[in-house]
């Protein structure tokens, strides 16, 4: 059987809010090392990769590898019934066709069990090659969210450029143009307010803002976001999940025809 008890249940709620509009159905792959998920959006332009390590759970048991096929909208409906401070336990039998979510209130005076039907999902995992990215930028996740939202009101695509000075986001549309530059900034009081640029070579790529906007639904998971870019490769937008792993989004670039 599989059982995972998560003291900070709100993390799971946040993960679901971040991916439920991008991916419809997906397998949660449970093994003794944790829970992993890989899924593409319906148009096969973006890929989501989630890792929740066993060590991040208060209790974790997985006797044999299980692929739990889940409709994310339905799981989101279930998790919305958990309080933000609740402890969440996931349970599934090896041969079962349901998953149980147990919610415990912080002072243990309310225990709720929700059972959700699983589905059979054929999924093939894509091999993501290890890449030495030409540019890696870490910046406040709220800042990234704001920039992407602001640019979305002006254009459909954004050019993201990285030089040793910083990262720039540009767009254009019927009403005009916009260009935002965030400079490397390591002299701030709080580490989470820093913007750091690690660069081997300047890089500039074009992406659909609609997807970038969708990724920023993960902002609540982490105060910082890391953007990794290389010429003619998908951008990686990574939100680290404290003590547990990460939520990564890969987005294919737009290329000159």
């Amino acid at each position: 059987m599989f059982e995972g008890r998560l003291l900070q249940g709100s993390l799971l709620k946040k993960v679901l809010e971040a991916i439920k509009d991008l991916v419809t159905d997906t397998n949660f792959d449970c093994s003794e090392t944790g829970i992993a998920l890989q899924a593409m959006d319906s148009s096969h332009v973006a890929l989501v990769s989630l890792l929740l390590k066993d060590t991040g759970f208060d209790h974790f048991r997985c006797d044999r590898n299980l692929a739990l096929g889940i409709n994310l909208q339905n799981m989101s409906k279930m998790l919305k019934c958990a309080g933000n401070d609740d402890i969440i336990t996931l349970k599934a039998e090896d041969e079962g066709d349901t998953i149980t979510f147990m919610f415990e209130s912080p002072n243990q005076d309310k225990i709720s069990d929700f059972e959700m039907k699983l589905m059979d999902i054929d999924s093939e995992h894509l091999g993501i090659p290890d890449t030495d990215y030409q540019a890696i930028v870490t910046m406040p996740s709220a800042e990234f969210q704001r920039i992407v939202r602001d640019l979305s009101s002006i254009g459909d695509t954004a050019v993201i450029g990285v030089t040793k000075e910083g990262i720039s986001f540009s767009t254009g549309g019927d009403i005009g143009k916009a260009n935002i530059v965030c400079r490397q900034n390591t002299n701030v009081d709080k580490e989470e307010d820093q913007t750091t640029v690690e660069i081997h070579e300047p890089v500039s790529l074009t992406f659909a803002l609609r997807y970038l906007n969708s990724f920023t639904k993960a902002t609540a998971l982490s105060p910082q976001v890391t953007l990794s870019l290389s010429k003619e490769l998908p951008i990686v937008v990574e939100y680290k999940i404290e003590k547990m792993g990460f939520l990564r989004f890969y987005l294919a670039p737009k290329i000159e025809e």
Binding site: A46, A208, Y250, P253, K254
Partner: peptide
């Protein structure tokens, strides 16, 4: 500009 698909970058097993 053309939108590339993600599967053209990552290999199926």
């Amino acid at each position: 500009m053309a939108q590339k698909g993600i599967t053209s970058f990552f290999q199926a097993p």
